[in-house]
Simulated scan of single mutants.
Amino acid sequence: MKGYTKPLLLITIILLVDQISKIWVKLNMTIGQSFKVISDRVMIQFIENPGMAYGMEFGGEYGKLFLSVFRIIAVAGIGYGLVYMVKNKYNRGFILNVALIFAGALGNIIDSAFYGLIFSESTPYQKAVLFPDGGGYATFLHGYVVDMFHLPIWKGTFPTWFPIWSGEEFVFFRPIFNVADSAISIGVFLILIFNNRYFKEEHVEKHDVNNEVVED
């Protein structure tokens, strides 16, 4: 198990925080309900996303099914890659970043695969019920992803000289997201930022190993 402890611990923590926060929101809030955490800049707002991360959609029932199947294949590929990286002693930081992406993708798959089976439908007028008598609101792989974090940090209006959106209102950051989305974004961001460092260290380690073999 050497080398697997930290990635597995990170994945477990992300999944627990992600699922606990989603289940709490699902059982305690109605669709569209929101409350302020820090003034109107940090808010909890409950929406359900039938598509991709940050509220983006991939249209239609077949689109939803395709997206769910694609997610499962992608997570299986990432999981296989993660095991390969640990076995071959890739850079630890890189492995943890991939673990973040894996945990986030798996967290949203859980929603898509099982929430439709175990929850009643959330509406603007009633909260969901866990394991309802009449069954869930959707079939396997057709559940909605629960999103709740809304950070409209900066609101304003585009100046009149600005092309296309002249005079229109804008909000930064507009998308509503969840813990799983955050884990994916952080993992990808850190890989992009530290990419050269990760693979430079990988090259140095392999070079040192080769030198030791030659010297022996």
Rank of each mutant, 00 (worst) to 15 (best):
Q33M: 08
G107R: 03
G77Q: 02
V69E: 02
V98D: 01
T12H: 07
A113D: 04
Y84R: 09
S21W: 09
I109S: 02
G107F: 05
F35R: 10
S122V: 13
N28C: 05
G59L: 01
G60W: 06
A53R: 13
L10T: 03
Q126F: 09
N49S: 10
Y90H: 15
V25D: 04
F46M: 15
N28Y: 06
I73M: 07
V75Q: 13
F58D: 02
E61P: 02
S34E: 15
I38F: 10
M52C: 12
F58V: 11
N28K: 12
V86N: 00
N88C: 06
Y84I: 05
P124I: 10
V42I: 11
I110C: 13
A76V: 15
F66G: 15
V86E: 01
S39E: 14
Q33N: 10
G32S: 08
I23A: 06
I95G: 06
V42D: 03
M29D: 00
I14P: 00
I95C: 14
R71P: 09
A113G: 06
R92S: 07
V98F: 11
I44W: 07
G93Y: 06
L10D: 00
Q126S: 13
F119D: 00
A128Y: 00
E121Y: 00
K22F: 08
N28Q: 07
G116D: 00
I101K: 01
L27Q: 06
G79C: 10
I72E: 08
S122T: 10
L82F: 13
I95M: 14
Q19V: 04
I38V: 10
E121L: 04
Y115H: 13
